[in-house]
Write a protein that binds this DNA or RNA. Sequence first.
RNA 1: GCCGGGAUGGCGGAACUGGCAGACGCACGGGACUUAAAAUCCCGCGGUGGGAACACUGUGUGGGUUCAAUUCCCACUCCCGGCACCA
Length: 824
Amino acid sequence: MREYDFHSIEPKWQDLWEAEKAYRTEDASDKPKLYCLDYFPYPSGDGLHVGHCRNYIPTDVISRYYRMKGFNVLHPMGWDAFGLPAENEAIRLKKSPREITRRNTANFKRQLKLLGTSYDWEREINSSDPEYYRWTQWFFLLLYKRGLAYEKESEQWWCPHCKTVLANEQAKDGKCWRCGTAVEKKQLKQWFFKITDYADRLADDLDTVDWPERIKIMQRNWIGKSVGAEVVFEIVSASDSSRHPVTVFTTRLDTIMGATFLVLAPEHPLVQEIVSDGQRADVETYIANAKTKTEIDRMSTEKEKTGVFTGAYAINPFSGEKVPVWIADYVLMGYGTGAIMAVPAHDSRDFVFAKKYGLPIRQVITWPGVTYEESVWNDLYSEHGSLVNSGRFDDLTTEAAFAAMIAEGQEKGVAKAETNYHMRDWLISRQRYWGAPIPMIHCPTCGTVPVPESQLPVLLPDVEGYEPSGTGESPLAGIKDWVETTCPVCGGPARRETDTMDGFACSSWYELRYTSPHDDKVPFDRAKVDYWLPVDLYVGGAEHAVMHLLYSRFWTKVMYDAGLIGFTEPFARLMNQGMLLSYDGQKMSKSRHNVITPDEVVEQYGADTLRLYELFMAPFEQEVAWSKEGISGAHRFVKRLWELGQRSIDASHGELRPARIPGFELHINKLTKKITEDVEKFKFNTAVAAFMEYFNFLSGIVRADETVLSTVEWQSGMHQLLVLLAPFAPHMTEELWQEYGGVGSIHRQPWPAWDDSKLVESEVEVAVQINGKVRGTMVVASDSNDDELEKLALRQDFVVKYTAGHIVKRVVVIKGKIVNIVVQ
RNA sequence: GCCGGGAUGGCGGAACUGGCAGACGCACGGGACUUAAAAUCCCGCGGUGGGAACACUGUGUGGGUUCAAUUCCCACUCCCGGCACCA
């Protein structure tokens, strides 16, 4: 009997699998296909911790399982290698980001191998490789050609720590998504992708994918579709009586007769032109104040609303009424038109503002049975109803009034239907070195022109220094040789665009690249993409709900529109693994000194133990804390199993005799069914529990009679157990399989089927209840009918005892489960 | 504030479509082995009462439906996540 020496077993098989290219994926096959993909990992210098393994272990189980089931499985891995941490680390260590990245990816790969994963490493990709980012640039040009990439000067989120701008969804709660620093606003000329053009499709197509509802809702909220109208008011300047049209966005055009004032965002360009001399000082002070506020302060809904009167008045295009124009920072320049019509009677925010500054409140909507009270806000007041105090629109329902006003407004040219989105265009310029250069050239005569496809890639120059300037200009701007180029149109001197692309651009198409990772003619081979895509199973954390997952969907739709691919959603099924907290219940982090690495766990217990433990500890989607005792329990199980395997192998050498082991066939068939169903449903925790249960059943039998080991049934049961366990614990099962003299790798064995007829037990235990309380059980033939069950139950001693002196009113029989006797 | 998700022993969790709550693991207690400890193996383990048989009670709280509720319905409490002045 051999000791369980995982230190030698695991590396042995890992090396052999690698040498034999055991997990290489075929491109053409008659088998059904399965594309199982992990989120594109960013190879940080810290390496993997056991939390990351909660992603890679389950996808490995799935991949191994489907291979055994006869699927052609694509399970690749690569590196989202461009990005700030590598660049910052490089600056700190005075090395090149390329070198840092090489070191980090090598470490990640080593760690993934340590877990016994079955990636096809021949398909490894790296987004910072020119062979890859050449095509990222190619896609940039595709978007540009399709009018979906544009340059615009505007105020943008700026992270003073990362020294770069951020896209809207990357500035969460006024903080940088990466480093948590409070973001500022900076006026800069930047490149954008017009993701808003796809807002409706991005929202609608969510119905077609099998994703967690939570993620779909987050995306819908983020897109934030809002159907309403734009209305033009005319503001009469208080200083020179000039007239200035101002457009407001409203979802409640029907309430326009109740608009008692207008509010502009403090940054609204019209403010300067309309403000009265008397109010100018106050207005200037207010604007200056608003600027110094952090976005966190400004966005807080707790904060009291403030504002200042401009001295100017606007004319309501529907009533001709003159209403005062205010500025207030509760109106955001970035949403809608930066100006609103305030209807305090029917909007809680306008109500609060009107109360504070003594502005008039006029009810224009009524509801049957509701009395409007001007002094206090009631949430009902924002409900739909019918109109009053609205002249020719009186008595219409809100919906009818809306339609009538649109019609009238369109005729007069003062209003039109309009839809707004919370989502903004995707700002992709980054003022940092370590990214894919934006393939554009600025020519003094021809303007901004794209780099011709034939000149791709625009290589990131190798340079000494690339520290961010912090001025809003990329470090590439300082590299004269690189910046100075010739215009591809006129041949004259021109300058390269010096910003690089957001790393999320690189990860917006990578799932396609795995199908033909080394193709140097096209970004992907259409036939292969047609075969493999969409991704059948995409697995990663929930943190990318509105970033990567939205961007990627957007690019996919653009490619579809360009005729490059034949599908509109890249990821058919999405699963989010739960977070793994450290043993202290805290998030694992370097600063808390509670990081657990797979290296240390594998060293102490082996990869198979780590795998089983992570699969067992909690449901896949659920957050759970690491337990030092828990992992040793998993290790105990692995060792016991190893020992039983060894004893079985020893017993297999002699003559085998047939035997009838009660329940044996039932158990192995039950196990097979359970494991198969649980794996497909991602219920790995109960699958592992089922293995443990089966093991307990087996060891009970051996304890009672050791000679059972050398029976035909035992040996075939043991074989099947190993095959079922192979995706979970690939090393030990392979080792035992080989010791058994199994032919080929256990990982190429066909997945066992179960026999439904063997699942039927001849006898079952049925619980007997009196008035819903279990008073005992009885063992009956499983094919007993209701009548027999009822009679049998009534004959039980404990039933006689409880029913004595009572009248049996009713007997409920649930076959094979329960008999409930209702008395008196 | 709005939108999601959740609450089951000392702990992680299990329970098909309403049918014996607590599978499996951990921790803990007892025993075996050992000079001893660790490891290993065996037994026990929701709470209360009881020597035991057994009884009562128990899935966040309060109601309801049902022969039967962790599961369905109504009201509420707390926790976690996301969004947050979006007009």
